[in-house]
Design a binder for these strands. Structure first.
Length: 604
DNA sequence: GCCGTTTTCGGCCCGACTGTTTTCAGTCG
């Protein structure tokens, strides 16, 4: 979802009848989130805001459209949806807006919601800033901070003003790109619709989504058809989720969906399918290098095919499939995840591309959460789904004690939880269920638990959840300290970045890689679509240095276990083979690892 | 605003961290 969705104007509910009839769960959830923000800004009961936010989240987790719940009179069965919220939802579904929402909009200064997007600025600060300086835009906030006006306000001094300026800069660098799971969801529904209705021989997603890039710009859809492509484009433009058509030509249509996602459809003849798929998959840099390789052989490559220079109007040497085109250039076929001009073309010319890790290579997920802390499903539901997904084992790694927000586990609760896990472990054999923990690394570098408590677990991953603004050397020492404890198996989301939301904290990743290779403490490739941490380039450096990796979903609900796929894609983008990833190893290797850990057998 | 009873209000996740404060408010997760 593009970032500018966050502005008040673009987030306002749709007014037309047609929109109202089809207001999506996401759209309703966003209005409820706005209501919560505006309640906070107005200073009326914060718990009311908490409820709206909780309802929005529950709605995002629904598996059916809200319309179905309304029609069956089941709206109040949704968590946190009572009489008031359900009335708002019904109004939204029926009319596209709601009185409660309109009233709040009317008395909230336009643009004030935007101030909340600045990390470090919450409702109280936003209100102070507005009441004293009448500031309602991020631009005005920036000016005021630069001119020193901000720090004349109560509770705001130089340091706070400085932090606000930094946050605004971060915000500026955000690009309005979508996270991969959002883009994938939109792409899936578009593709399903086209496959059912459009007269096309082939349909595929191309572009950054096919390359499984960290974040996605437009969704590119490629269609092959013998017939004149007009009919395909007509069907596409009539897709019910289309909000507006930006461009409409003979072979290309660009639309914006209700979700805010832009989608391009292009059509080609089947004989050009492979060449077009390469061209529209990119990256641009990959294509440039590829065309250069073609030219050195006296060939010309474009989206229609591969030709001898000067014979572009004649028959193509290749073009129907990607394999044909790469083959005609005497190269191996290149997996889309590698097409970034980072050496893959030379490797393909030498037929020395690595065999990349695949999702079925993964034997177990070692970072998952249950409703014992901040997850949304039970230990049993998580374990059973993990088994269904074809793994040999799973570790439930709920949060440690200091994450109050996540109901961190006391020693008593750890023992109680272990009893449940032991029963599951017996019941689901030969599948194995391990007791794990995501232990917090505190500001001073200490772990939340003493070693004797860490020994209550089979699998422990450590991570940073607080004090993210420490200097680089302090932060690095903090993490390295955890890595040198042989009871710590891995470091989760090693840089703490949240894509499109928060930069990585200052940390010497190369030092983490070095210590990882030295101690065997693994570095996690986190599959959470808003983390994908480590970044692909760091994954590649880790592999080169011989640092052991582990790919995890960090799932907080059963549906999120499939985020493993994103972690695998990210590892592939970092050229990872199965051998570089520890949790591709089978159960007996995992059991041996747990046994070694129990005896603390690891270089420190 | 919801929830779950101790059925008609009181509690709602709560601790760490930061910056501004000498005891706490705001933000975050």
């Amino acid at each position: 979802m593009p970032r500018d969705d966050a502005s008040l104007v673009s987030r306002a509910p749709a007014k037309s009848r047609r929109d109202a009839a089809e207001m999506s769960n996401e759209r309703v959830a966003r209005v409820l989130d706005d209501v919560a923000d505006m309640i906070d800004l107005g200073g009326e009961g914060t718990f009311r805001a908490v409820t709206y936010r909780a309802a929005a989240r529950a709605i995002r987790d629904l598996r059916e459209p809200l319309g179905v719940y309304r029609d069956q009179g089941r709206l109040t069965e949704i968590e946190k949806v009572g009489p008031s919220v359900s009335a708002v939802i019904v109004e939204l579904l029926d009319t596209g807006t709601a009185k409660r929402y309109e009233e709040l909009v009317a008395r909230t200064p336009p643009g004030l919601l935007d101030l909340l997007r600045v990390p470090g600025v919450g409702p109280a600060t936003a209100r102070t800033i507005y009441e004293n300086l009448k500031i309602t835009t991020i631009e005005e906030l920036e000016d005021a901070a630069r001119e020193g006006r901000l720090q004349q306000l109560p509770k705001i001094q130089a340091k706070t003003a400085e932090r606000i300026l930094q946050s605004i800069e971060q915000l500026r660098r955000r690009s309005g790109r979508s996270l991969v799971h959002h883009a994938l969801r939109d792409a899936g529904t578009v593709l399903a619709y086209l496959r059912e209705h459009a007269p096309a021989a082939r349909l595929e997603i191309a572009g950054s989504l096919r390359r499984m890039a960290e974040t996605i710009g437009d969704i590119d859809v490629l269609a092959a058809t013998e017939a004149p492509p007009r009919a395909v484009h007509d069907v596409f433009a009539a897709y019910p989720e289309v909000e507006r058509v930006l461009a409409r030509g003979e072979t290309k249509t660009t639309v914006v969906l209700r979700s805010g996602q832009q989608v391009d459809l292009r059509t080609v003849a089947p004989a050009s399918w492979g060449a077009a798929l390469i061209y529209f998959t990119g990256s641009k840099e990959h294509n440039v290098r590829l065309r250069h390789v073609a030219l050195t052989r006296g060939l010309l490559l474009n989206e229609y095919g591969l030709y001898r220079v000067g014979e572009e109007s004649g028959p193509a040497l290749a073009g129907a499939t990607e394999e044909d085109v790469y083959g005609a250039l005497e190269m191996s076929w290149i997996p889309p995840e590698l097409r970034e001009d980072r050496g893959e073309i030379d490797a393909a010319l030498a037929h020395r591309l690595p065999v990349l890790v695949r999702r079925p290579d993964i034997k177990g997920d070692l970072h998952t959460h249950s409703d014992w802390t901040d997850g949304r499903d039970s230990l049993e539901a998580m374990a059973r789904r993990a088994k269904q997904l074809g793994y040999e084992y799973v570790a439930l790694t709920d949060h440690s004690i200091s994450l109050g927000m996540a109901k961190g586990m006391t020693v008593d609760r750890i023992r109680e939880r272990n009893a449940v896990l032991e029963r599951l472990d017996r019941d689901l054999r030969p599948f194995r269920v391990f007791s794990g923990c995501e232990v917090n690394i505190r500001a001073d570098g200490a772990l939340d638990y003493e070693d004797e408590v860490l020994l209550l677990f089979d699998v422990v991953t450590a991570s940073i959840h607080s004090a993210m603004h420490q200097p680089k050397d302090v932060m690095t020492r903090r993490i390295v300290g955890a890595m040198r404890n042989p009871l710590i198996d891995a470091i989760s989301h090693p840089t703490g970045r949240l894509l499109e939301r928060r930069d990585a904290y200052e940390v010497d990743v190369d030092e983490l890689i070095r210590v990882s290779a030295e101690t065997g403490c693994r570095l996690e490739v986190n599959g959470g679509p808003e983390r994908l941490d480590l970044a692909d380039v760091s994954v590649r450096r880790a592999i080169a240095a011989g640092a052991p990796l582990v790919i995890n979903s960090d799932a907080h609900a059963i549906g999120e276990l499939e985020w493993m796929e994103f972690g695998v894609a990210n590892a592939r983008r970092g050229w990872a083979t199965a051998a570089a990833v520890e949790n591709t190893k089978p159960l007996d290797a995992m059991l041996a690892h747990i046994e070694r850990r129990r005896r603390s057998e690891r270089p420190r």
